[in-house]
């Protein structure tokens, strides 16, 4: 169990690189009741790195820039990572639908993308003709900024709970007449290619006598039993 967390984090990082964490989506005033990514405001590096910050180390999957892009894995002269827009390749090259079929990692291109999101193919969600857009189940195009609508096609209960304030978290005001609130979108917490919420390292372990005595008794039990660990 203990070993799995770092592996998860590494995989998550790989996925981010492979899928291009630098997408940008312009705030589009989607009239839909599903908030767009841009409505969820600045949850940026500062809050993610501060130890006491309330946001966790979950994969921030926030598109940035003018066009969706993927990282090339090549650094420029300044050592910065470089990215290439999706349409740079996809405008000239037909999609290989067998590439990484049935989940797993693509064989060519997008290598390192750990895909674990049911039995979908890439084009279930990505538009086959316009790689700067997503695709709804009925074939209509959908801007990346409206990704939540795409998710809600399958994840109805979660969407319902989200819309009623009991999924995804918020900050700000409970009393909307007094102030606004900040909310996450689906992809703030769930990687669209591997959406299972990752394991977290629990913080702030109790330090009182209760915890200390419990630890001592656990240690004594471990010593006394033949099994190396009495509980997980």
């Amino acid at each position: 169990m203990k070993r799995r967390a770092p592996i998860c984090l590494v995989l998550t990082a790989l996925v981010l690189v492979a899928t291009g964490g630098q997408w940008l989506l312009r705030a589009s005033a989607s009239g839909a009741d599903i908030p767009s990514a841009a409505q969820s405001t600045q949850v940026d590096a500062t809050t993610q790195t501060a130890p006491v910050a309330s946001r966790p180390e979950v994969p921030p999957h926030r598109p940035r820039g003018h066009h969706p892009s993927v990282a090339t894995g090549i650094a420029d002269a300044h050592g910065n990572t470089t990215a290439v827009a999706c349409m740079t390749c996809h405008a000239t090259r037909a999609s290989d639908l067998d590439n990484g079929a049935a989940g797993g990692t693509p064989k060519t291109f997008h290598q390192g993308l750990a895909y674990a999101h049911g039995g979908q193919s890439c084009l279930s969600c990505h538009h086959s003709e316009d790689y700067d857009a997503l695709r709804l189940a009925d074939g209509r195009k959908l801007a990346f900024s409206d990704a939540q609508k795409l998710c809600s096609q399958c994840h109805g209960p979660q969407t319902r709970d989200y819309l009623n304030g009991s999924h995804g978290g918020m900050r700000g005001y409970w009393d909307k007449s007094k102030g606004t609130r900040t909310r996450n979108t689906c992809t703030d917490c769930h990687d669209p290619h591997a959406p299972a919420f990752p394991q977290l390292t629990p913080v702030f372990a109790p330090r009182d006598g209760a915890a200390r005595q419990q630890a001592e008794r656990d240690a004594a039990r471990v010593r006394n039993s033949t099994q190396p660990s009495a509980h997980e």
Binding site: S54, G169, W174
Partner: peptide, 30 residues
């Protein structure tokens, strides 16, 4: 009118807070 600190800190949105007397509130929906 603000949310409590524990709710704002929750990374999954497991916590729902609100006015029980407001039929439109999220807590009432839950």
């Amino acid at each position: 009118g603000k949310l409590p600190a524990c709710l704002e800190a929750c990374p999954t949105g497991a916590r729902v807070f609100g006015n029980l007397l407001d039929p439109e509130s999220e807590i009432r929906w839950v």
